[in-house]
């Protein structure tokens, strides 16, 4: 999966419009990145990449790129 596809998947998970997210964006600046989205993110990463994110890992995410880094 290339970066573009991963971003599209994240946009779907965040429930934001296509092309809204870019790697350098700070998660704190994204209104949609709330507790509900974090649960959807766990589900998406588990379904697509077979790994379970923990609360501690999610806390460490600062930018969109940090999430892209675990999507392998």
């Amino acid at each position: 999966m290339d970066e573009k596809e991963k971003l599209a998947l994240l946009e779907e998970t965040f429930d934001v419009d296509e092309g809204t997210l870019s790697p350098e964006m700070l998660l704190d600046d994204i209104d949609e990145y709330d507790s509900m989205t974090k649960l959807s993110l766990i589900v998406m990463v588990e379904d697509e990449f077979g790994k379970k994110l923990t609360g501690a890992e999610i806390k460490e995410f600062k930018t969109v790129q940090d999430i892209l880094n675990v999507m392998v």
Partner: peptide, 12 residues
């Protein structure tokens, strides 16, 4: 409630 821990427990 530690939402993420409870969520991960429930789904695993």
């Amino acid at each position: 409630m530690d939402g993420i821990s409870v969520f991960n427990f429930s789904t695993e």
